[in-house]
Nucleic acid binder design. Structure first.
Lengths: 138, 138
DNA sequence: GTCCTTGCAAATAGTTTGCAAGCCG
DNA sequence: CGGCTTGCAAACTATTTGCAAGGAC
């Protein structure tokens, strides 16, 4: 029985496992601090440093994504499939935008030229606006 | 004679003026620290706090842009016209991508739907890759 | 004169790191 | 056992803020 960690040549560690499991259950794009609080419920001795170290390792191994929504705090996402994010400028929460940007559009963005001067490896789009709940409040 | 600051209901201040002037001369997307060093040459007593306060004010008044390229430092850009940015993952510099993303594509991104559930006010695209210089080195 | 802005220094927020002890394979 | 991982606390980086003095209008 090969674990998801072994597949990435990572040792098993209870702390890392709990972090990964928590991230897989949520779509709220938690910050390191929030992850720490949650995992602490099951592993009271865990330290914030450990959380940061594991998040870094999981990101490096492409098991999770790190989002920089521009408010100074990194957020994490275990959903590594192609999707985009909306930062609600009212409540500060980050939402998944289910609908993909059409392949044709992505293609268009990539080849949008840049005169072949640079080598574009990828891009990230961050959307800003109001989430459904906040929209309804006004 | 109405200054660019008065137009925005901002007082004149020599420090703010120097920051703005420096930003207008460069396209290197400097960090606050770098701006501080540069302006210090002309205004040796200026403090870093003043630089941060003015940058914030200029951003709030939409006279400059604040970029979050994901490396933990904010960068600033006096070019507020529509353009995108490339972060070179090799040298860490930020470049302007002159060519716009075609209006049709932008339109497509906006109306890409999101089911009208959220209200999208805008989006930012950050490109990652290698700049021309770094590409040539390999 | 009033309100805005400054320099300075201290404070804060998020994140990283050195170390000795503990766990995985 | 050897190397990876941990908890803890201290360190670090980028940025913000309180305050008394100085400048704009």
């Amino acid at each position: 029985m090969i674990t998801v960690f072994q597949r990435k040549n990572m040792n098993y560690s209870r702390q890392r496992d709990l972090i990964m499991e928590y991230l897989k259950t949520t779509s709220c794009h938690p910050t390191a601090e929030k992850i720490y609080e949650k995992v602490k419920l099951q592993e009271p001795n865990i330290s914030l440093g450990t959380v940061y170290r594991n998040l870094k390792q999981l990101v490096d191994n492409k098991m999770i994504l790190r989002l920089h929504m521009g408010d100074g705090v990194d957020r994490f996402d275990a959903n590594i499939s192609e999707h985009n994010h909306l930062y609600c400028t009212n409540c500060g929460k980050v939402y998944d935008l289910e609908k993909k940007i059409p392949d044709k559009v992505v293609q268009n963005i990539y080849t949008s030229d840049f005169q072949g001067e640079n080598k574009i490896d990828g891009f990230v789009i961050y959307f800003y606006g109001k989430c459904r709940s906040c929209k309804l409040l006004n």
